[in-house]
């Protein structure tokens, strides 16, 4: 069995009835992107993130974000060593392959911003010294939607750094019944084997880049991005466009294709675009997924 299919199967044993979202999450990580899982409490966000870390065989740390959290709680802190009379940097939880940032929107903007450099540069600077983060490095964050009490919405700059935002939604009837029957999902996690390893994930990332991209497909991606800039107040950034292409490549790889097809772009587009789009009237991005669907329907596929 293909290791990718195996990975998917392993995750879907824990996360029931969410095949599409699971694929998107895997796509995101293969495309070397950070993942934001957003939904109301109790639908399995943390479980999914946890599961991903385990199955991919990555070294992972979990940080529960709280409102009194400081940047040092994430990055680490320099401590004066009496014996050597020098400052010594004690690495924080960010020095891991997969950082599970739980309830990321509960932290103050100050703490959130500490994640910024780490996410984009994949390195951390403390007291003028730069420490590289391990490879691969992912941030998988979960958050509750903004309307929840006691949360700070992520700033646009940080939202743009998440390649995808995946919404889980409530399980369907059959899946929910199985959940009820099987009991606590977290116990299942402990039995879940690591299908891949850090090295294999890096290898897969490289293979993603080799998936063929035709000129016609680049035309299509550019048309989508251009249309978003034309129609909306906040369109898609070049980083988003880059991510869209990489994610489509990863999606193609997961589905055993050697070339990216427009349908692959269409599949990953809502997850990539929804949290970045903003309408001109200044409405919040709550309709982001509708905007993304409308954009897809507005741009002809080159045939």
């Amino acid at each position: 069995m293909n290791p990718l299919d195996e990975t998917l199967a392993a995750i879907e044993r824990v996360i029931l009835g969410k095949g599409q979202q699971v694929r998107l999450c895997l796509t995101c990580l293969l495309a070397r992107g950070h993942l934001l899982i957003e939904d109301v409490p109790g639908v399995g966000k943390t479980t999914l993130a946890h599961c991903l870390a385990r199955v991919l065989g990555l070294e992972w740390t979990r940080v529960q974000f709280t409102s009194d959290m400081l940047p040092a709680d994430i990055i680490g802190v320099s401590i004066f060593d009496r014996d050597t009379h020098k400052f010594q940097f004690r690495r924080g939880p960010v020095f891991t392959q997969l950082l599970l940032a739980d309830e990321v929107n509960r932290a103050s903007p100050k703490a959130q911003s500490a994640l910024l450099e780490a996410m984009e540069e994949r390195q951390v600077s403390v007291d003028g010294v730069t420490y590289p983060l391990p490879e691969p490095f992912y941030v998988v964050a979960t958050q509750n939607p903004h309307e929840q009490v006691g949360t700070y919405g992520l700033p646009e700059s940080q939202l743009d750094r998440f390649l995808m935002r995946v919404t889980l939604g409530y399980p369907d009837r059959a899946s929910e019944r199985r959940v009820l029957l099987q009991g606590e999902r977290r116990e299942l996690l402990n039995d879940t084997p690591a299908v891949l390893s850090g090295a294999e994930v890096l290898n897969l990332q490289l293979r993603v880049r080799l998936v063929h991209v035709a000129g016609a497909l680049l035309d299509y991606v550019q048309a989508l991005v251009a249309r978003s800039r034309l129609e909306l107040a906040l369109g898609l950034s070049p980083r988003a466009a880059q991510g869209l292409l990489r994610a489509a490549q990863a999606w193609a790889l997961i589905h055993g294709e050697s070339a990216v097809l427009p349908e692959h772009v269409q599949m990953v587009f809502p997850a990539i675009a929804a949290h970045r789009l903003e309408t001109r009237q200044g409405e919040a991005a709550t309709h982001g997924s509708e905007l993304a669907d409308a954009l897809i329907k507005a741009v002809p596929v080159p045939v």
């Binding site: 097809l261 427009p262 349908e263 269409q266 897809i296 329907k297 507005a298 741009v299 002809p300 596929v301 045939v303």
Partner: peptide
Amino acid sequence: HALEKKLRRLAPPRAAYECPT
């Protein structure tokens, strides 16, 4: 396009955004 033309009577035509598959 010749294929689409052949299928024209079977189903509503392909929308501009609809992928061939």
